[in-house]
Amino acid sequence: METYIFILFATLAVAAAVGMITSRNTVNSALFLVLNLISVAGIFLLLKAQFLAVIQVLVYGGAIMVLFLFVIMLLNLSDEEQMLSKFSVRYAVGFFLGVIVLSQLLYVIASVTGTLPRIHPEMEAVGTVETIGDALFNIYMLPVLVTAILLTAAVVGALLLAQRNISGKVNK
């Protein structure tokens, strides 16, 4: 059974990724990306990495995708008609999203009632918040700190590139 679910998620993830780069409509593209991210979250769930799966849905599927959609809607209003004509695609995407969310809900219910098959006793421990926190803030403390510098560099760089008039700052 798990193999089948894995195959479903894996196919969905790859198909969504292909759909994302091939679809001409940016909104469709973004929705395909959501589908891709959520399928990956499903694979995480299969691996018993619940924490990663939740984070994947919350951060990538939720927060980052909302930002994407906002940017697309604010910037690109020209093909609104095209968007409307592809209603069926949007319904399909919505259907799939519904299925994924439903399967997650069922998963939670099933795991509470104990009807899910066990993967491996070791795997259960790996996916919890404690194990991840322990790894991140013990052995991998230095990489976590370095990530702070990486993100700072990215923010400074993004601002530098986004500045409208760079030469106004020169000769200060």
Binding site: I149, A153, V156, G157, L160, I166, S167, K169, V170, N171
Partner: peptide, 18 residues
Amino acid sequence: TGMHIAEVYSMILFAAFG
């Protein structure tokens, strides 16, 4: 070349850090 801004140096230092 009229491109002397302070951010350049912090970017160079971050790159060197990496």
